[in-house]
Design a protein around this nucleic acid. Sequence first.
DNA 1: AAGTGGTCTAGACCACACT
DNA 2: GTGTGGTCTAGACCACTTC
Lengths: 264, 264
Amino acid sequence: MAAGKSITIPKDTKSAGANRAGAKRAPVMSDRAPLYEQVGYFIRQRLIDNYWKPGTALPSEIELGKELGVSQGTVRKALDDMVADHLLYRRQGLGTFVSEYTDRRALYLFFNLMDEQGTRVLPENNILECGPRKASKLECDRLRLRANAKVIRLSRVRSLKGVPTILETISVSQRLFPGLGRDGNLPPHLYRHYQTEYGISIAKADERARAIAASDQQAAHLNVEPGSPLLEIERVAITLDAKPVELRVSRCETSVYQFCAERG
Amino acid sequence: MAAGKSITIPKDTKSAGANRAGAKRAPVMSDRAPLYEQVGYFIRQRLIDNYWKPGTALPSEIELGKELGVSQGTVRKALDDMVADHLLYRRQGLGTFVSEYTDRRALYLFFNLMDEQGTRVLPENNILECGPRKASKLECDRLRLRANAKVIRLSRVRSLKGVPTILETISVSQRLFPGLGRDGNLPPHLYRHYQTEYGISIAKADERARAIAASDQQAAHLNVEPGSPLLEIERVAITLDAKPVELRVSRCETSVYQFCAERG
DNA sequence: AAGTGGTCTAGACCACACT
DNA sequence: GTGTGGTCTAGACCACTTC
């Protein structure tokens, strides 16, 4: 016994064995971290590897504890943290499950669009164009691409109750998402599509907002006067292993619908 | 043993004694709630009553457990929840403390203002006017005031590195904040001032964002052309006991500085 | 009835901060 | 050294879901 406990990593995973070596190895997880953090790291890694897939149940807490050589309470604390991060959810009597990207969850996270009364609204989508392009400077910067990289860029108008309200441009690296949107096969839930078709799970996003004046083209799409104020939201979606993989720039006509957030 | 455990509420508080009577009393907390929720409710109540004041330490977990007739682990779980809500914070070896509104915390919560590189900036404030007014329709609606109520309304320009960037109007009920800002005694940290001078603690806020065109007056204050797009953020600050007490409308010039949020 | 997560306890030891 | 929160364990019982 004595200093530096660590979990026993089951064999059917890649990582090397010498877990007690002392000199903390490069990748993220130190031997000296609390057990529950080691457990959390292990579980996250299995999510990243798509070993446990969205919508499926994890082994029970007791089983996990036995597998990793820790008590049920320690597993529980690790799971608690990931439930708080919305990576997992629990159903009493049933088990602990890997989160999926559903409409409800997409609306719950990130910015919410709602009317004056605070009611949420679901948009209909109308795709303007979609295909491979040379990455812009902004795209290179936000997605950490090299200067001449290719992206797949998608533009669409989102309408609320028939009124065009949001003009959205979505960019992803072509290397990571080959064939995305070819044959116009564009699913309604993009994040879910990334997950099921490309094994890439979005864990969080950074957003920034500013006000801009509508260009002629934007104005035409949104049916407003050129120069009208629009709310521009730039969102970078980040994967479980902290890579930025999608840039989404939305220009929103906010005279009726607004963006809401509850903070604190 | 048997159904419906409950904590034993110490005497030096108002609430009545018969805690095991069965018929769940009206106010909010059911006898059948888990112990840790009852403990959390009890602690929240002491914060609302200003029994434990911001910046001071709570009794230790063991002491609290003894006082309430529960184990340390149960107290810990209650405190964990409140730490997650930023109502309390812990310092290992020292104790658990009631959160205050510091600059750092105000920046951490709610919208963050930052430049293109993602660096945070602190604004300087310049007060335009401040005094009692008849509440507007918006103020009545958001602060739940009766039609002819009075508010104290404060307008200020916030500048970043000398450049006027945010035009802000703050409204609070005069009944709740009598004398606020009289003699021009306006502290830099308003939320903290509410807490120390009026015993009112802000726990969270609802925000909504839209884009507007600058009016002539707004444009003059912000040194931009009339009609320029501005980001308007409306924030309603909510107390520990869930009452909306402050309305803050900010019009922001976002060509340099933007509003950022990390979600997920 | 069996299995899961949810709550609660009691006790051990560690890491940290003050005196 | 003493007291605090931080981690970890083992075990009990409850509530819920499925069979």
